[in-house]
């Protein structure tokens, strides 16, 4: 694989990445963008790379944005990515794990895999799995699921974090995902004070896995209706919407509470959203951990 890594940072360079990804050809070539298999771009350079925007947008292959600064301008990255073809990925924050994360991602792109829950966990682990079809049961479902788990070696706030994260994931699955025969969203503008109930075969599935070093949460809906545009316009949003329906900041809360956020969309069939939180005894470490976002379309 030919990887073009546009970066001017010394600590996060093609040379460093090449040392990790020995099987691949990693270069930095600002003049020949578009002829690589994977293009990795340091977000901090974006403003100087205006000429390349069209390439980024058109690249149908694989685009990875990384940020080597703590001032991770995710809004800007999503604005650009909103016009590129999937799959795309964003990895950010200047931490040692950043390089590791990018190399893991390259492995994933090479193997054409989607960072699915099975791939991450293997088959050995047992987690909590619940089906939910009725939005009035969201709160008790979350309490029941989290009540079965003990998160050792993790900061004490973790249950509050997960509770909020899962709440938003389930609201999305029950209110935003459902579409009718015409493909229109059924409950998009429904007042959230009124509850919805899905058919049993359309119930969403919540899974939580608590491993030695990670907490993985997955919510699957059976509609596969979320689009890249919706994600791009909501993921870094910090203003509530005054339209009927959801408040518009749920996705941003989910992203902010996850280290890794993965969307695997099988259009018209299902969407799986996976949130990964690495376990740290200290909350500060949790805040400092590299964050990444991944979007896959499964044909």
């Amino acid at each position: 694989m030919k990887i073009n890594f546009l970066s001017k940072s010394e600590e996060f360079s093609a040379e460093k990445l090449s040392a990790v990804l020995t099987e691949h050809e990693v270069v930095t070539n600002f003049d020949n963008v578009g002829n690589e298999d994977i293009l990795i771009v340091d977000i901090s350079l974006l403003e100087n790379l205006q000429d390349h925007f069209d390439y980024f947008k058109k690249l149908a292959k694989n685009l990875v944005f990384v940020s080597t600064s703590n001032d991770f301008n995710i809004k800007f990255a999503f604005e650009i990515l909103s016009k590129s073809s999937p799959p795309y990925h964003i990895v950010g924050l200047n931490t040692p794990e950043c390089l590791e994360k990018v190399s893991e991602l390259v492995g994933c792109i090479v193997n054409r895999s989607t960072l699915s829950l099975q791939e991450m966990l293997g088959e050995t682990l047992k987690g909590v799995e619940v089906q939910i079809q009725d939005s009035s049961k969201i709160s008790e479902t979350i309490k029941g699921a989290l009540g079965q788990l003990e998160f050792e070696n993790c900061f004490s706030q973790i249950k509050d974090t997960l509770s909020q994260l899962i709440n938003e994931l389930l609201y999305n699955a029950l209110f935003n995902a459902p579409t009718d025969e015409k493909g229109d969203q059924q409950f998009l503008e429904q007042d959230r004070k009124d509850h919805v109930s899905l058919d049993q075969n359309k119930a969403a599935t919540l899974q939580i896995y608590n491993t030695e070093d990670k907490i993985l949460t997955s919510v699957v809906d059976h509609y596969g209706s979320i689009t890249k545009e919706v994600i791009d316009s909501h993921i870094s949003r910090n203003e509530v919407s005054d339209k009927a329906g959801g408040a518009g900041i749920g996705l941003s809360l989910i992203y902010n509470n996850s280290h890794e956020l993965i969307f695997v969309v099988e259009p018209g069939v299902q969407t799986e959203v996976i949130s990964v939180i690495n376990k740290y005894k200290r909350y500060k470490q949790n805040m400092k951990h590299v964050r990444s976002f991944h979007f896959f379309i499964k044909e």
């Binding site: 938003e168 609201y171 509530v240 919407s241 959801g246 408040a247 900041i249 749920g250 809360l253």
Partner: peptide
């Protein structure tokens, strides 16, 4: 306060 979700944030505002 034990929990606050996105719709709660909107009502609060």
């Amino acid at each position: 306060v034990s929990m606050i979700n996105s719709c709660g944030v909107r009502e609060w505002i």
